Simulated scan of single mutants.
Amino acid sequence: MKLVIFDCDGTLVDSQHMIVAAMDAAFASLGRPSPGRFATLSIVGLSLREAFERLTSPDDADIPALIEAYKNAFHALRADPAHTEPLYDGARMVVEALAAQGDVILGIATGKSQRGVRLVLGHHGIFDHFATIQTADDAPSKPHPAMIAQAMAAVGVGPEATIMIGDTTFDIDMAVAAGVAPIGVGWGYHPAAALHAAGARMVLSHFTELPAGLAAIWHPAGQGAMAGP
């Protein structure tokens, strides 16, 4: 069996508008200036505590209040039909095709909460395709390798048969630390050059390139092939 682990925000789901809006609202609620879009997107993928420590400072006394304000703002935005978290183009087709293959198990490793993952993936009707969901509720923040280690243990697949897919250097660093192959995606929140520098085996430009990318790692030099979507 093989395991493909996906990040969520910036990889499967485009949630940048909601993340930035919720972050702006959190800082505004405490009368503090917004960190700005670039800084906010640079920390997507981290746990909330780690994210706010990077946006402020590790000893900032406002961090607990900022975290609570961010959660409240994000939940309010999610309830507003004007705000959406769409799947990236091709994501559904590729996830469904991989899930239909008998020798591939799918997983999630994300800085989202379990509740958040269930809501967004359930909304798109793809939650049940993932056999293991690892979140910031259950493990240290990326780039610590615990989420990947827990995912592998949950489904009984070793690092040699596991690939991590993500859009940030936190995902790539986590994969390298866990001893699994990382694939970057170029449609998310960190630049492709940074993903390559962190150790990504490749950086995809569209979701439909993923099956060929997986095959190139699992079956190098034409040693078998993996069906496309």
Score class of each variant (00 low, 15 high):
128 D>C: 00
66 L>W: 04
93 M>Y: 07
147 M>N: 08
128 D>N: 02
178 A>E: 09
98 L>H: 01
70 Y>Q: 06
184 G>I: 02
136 A>K: 02
164 M>R: 13
108 I>E: 06
177 A>D: 08
136 A>S: 10
97 A>I: 04
171 D>G: 07
147 M>A: 11
117 V>A: 13
124 H>C: 09
185 V>N: 09
120 V>T: 15
74 F>G: 10
168 T>M: 13
81 P>F: 12
175 A>W: 02
95 V>F: 13
98 L>P: 00
152 M>A: 05
125 G>Q: 07
176 V>R: 15
98 L>I: 03
164 M>E: 09
77 L>C: 08
116 G>L: 05
128 D>I: 01
106 L>M: 05
183 I>K: 03
181 A>I: 11
114 Q>D: 15
94 V>Q: 01
107 G>M: 01
137 D>L: 04
132 T>E: 02
88 Y>H: 13
106 L>C: 06
63 I>F: 05
152 M>N: 05
134 Q>C: 07
97 A>T: 13
175 A>Q: 03
130 F>P: 05
111 G>W: 03
150 Q>I: 07
134 Q>P: 01
92 R>G: 15
153 A>F: 11
125 G>H: 07
131 A>P: 09
129 H>Y: 01
104 V>E: 00
123 H>K: 15
132 T>G: 03
158 G>W: 08
92 R>F: 14
158 G>R: 01
147 M>C: 07
143 P>A: 08
155 V>C: 08
152 M>Q: 12
161 A>S: 15
78 R>A: 07
101 Q>V: 00
142 K>S: 09
74 F>T: 11
154 A>P: 10
101 Q>I: 00
100 A>G: 02
108 I>V: 13
86 P>N: 10
80 D>E: 08
174 M>D: 06
109 A>F: 03
138 D>G: 06
85 E>K: 07
94 V>T: 06
179 G>Q: 03
122 G>D: 10
99 A>E: 00
113 S>K: 13
158 G>S: 12
129 H>M: 00
104 V>P: 00
166 G>L: 13
76 A>N: 13
131 A>R: 15
68 E>A: 14
144 H>T: 11
131 A>Q: 14
167 D>F: 05
78 R>K: 11
98 L>Y: 00
132 T>Q: 02
